[in-house]
Amino acid sequence: MNKIILIIAGMTLVTYIPRLLPFFIVSSSKLPRKVSRFLKLIPYTALGALIIPGAFTAIPQMPLAAILGVGFAFIYSWLKGGIIIPVFGSVAMVLLLLIVK
């Protein structure tokens, strides 16, 4: 078998199985309270680990641009909410900073 196809097949399995398996283990009814609270906190802690420190090193050519970009996203969404404008705004800001650099 072609090496690349083997890699793709293996990667597909080891990615899909961890995504699928919990749906057969965890069911929303009759979870112990502590487990249920633990699972409810995962969105916050996962986002914390996804954002920090990655967001600050996202633009290796110009770390300041990354800081200003995510700073804009944070301040705008704090004041006005929404997702599209923070996303476009931070991309535009980083793009501009990289162009004028």
Binding site: A58, S77, P86
Partner: peptide, 22 residues
């Protein structure tokens, strides 16, 4: 290339925008 270089910020900005109201 500058377009590709600036795009990695997009998903981080999205994560932040999702999280900020919380």
């Amino acid at each position: 290339p500058v377009i590709g270089d600036s795009m990695p910020i997009a998903l981080y900005a999205m994560f932040i925008a999702i999280l900020t109201p919380e």
